[in-house]
Simulated scan of single mutants.
Amino acid sequence: MSLAQRIPEVLKDFREKRLSGLRPVADFFDHRQLSRPRDLNDATQRITYNTRHFSGNYLLVILVLALYALLTNPLLLIAIAIFAGGFAAINKFGSDPVEVGNAVITQKTLYIALFVIGLPILFFASPIGVFFWLVGSSSILIIGHAVLMEPGLESEYSGVESV
């Protein structure tokens, strides 16, 4: 099964497993549950509970930040498009060697040319900086939200088994 055929299946699986855990926006932004933790132990318990409780929402926050990072860095978008388009074109059209004059252009030659063109563009797009910005900004937002949100009443009964 090719990658193009698996994309709808992967998206459906992602939607069923990850996005089914999304909490309502009113719960996620409920300002009545905002408070400062009493101590480090309380903060740790809040982080533990809220990262499980709001995991779908936090994943959505990370995806939105990643989309923002890509849209505000057009050179990175161009580099990704060059690599994705180049790989797709080489896999589709470049499987057979082509003779141009005395030179034979193979799939290996096309990949080398793609990297010679794409890597300098990717270098100037600074993907490592974008990655660390994404990690830092999402960590600050998620940990800040998880620390400040008081767990709901259902957290008090999470250890109790029902009969």
Rank of each mutant, 00 (worst) to 15 (best):
S2P: 14
Q5Y: 14
P8T: 05
E9P: 01
E9H: 07
L11Y: 07
R15C: 06
E16D: 14
K17Q: 12
R23V: 09
D27H: 06
D30H: 00
R36H: 09
N41A: 15
A43H: 03
T44H: 13
Y49K: 07
N50E: 12
N50F: 02
S55D: 12
G56M: 06
N57A: 08
Y58F: 10
L65R: 00
A66S: 15
L67G: 09
L70C: 04
P74F: 09
L77F: 02
I78E: 02
A79V: 00
I80Q: 00
F83V: 00
A84D: 10
G85R: 02
G85A: 10
G86P: 00
A88V: 08
A89H: 05
I90G: 02
G94K: 08
E99Y: 14
V100W: 03
Q107H: 15
K108T: 10
A113Q: 04
F115K: 04
V116Y: 02
I121C: 00
I121K: 00
F124D: 03
I128V: 13
G129C: 08
F131M: 12
L134E: 01
S139N: 12
I143F: 08
G144V: 07
A146Q: 04
G152Y: 05
S155A: 10
V160T: 13
V160S: 14
V160N: 12
S162P: 07
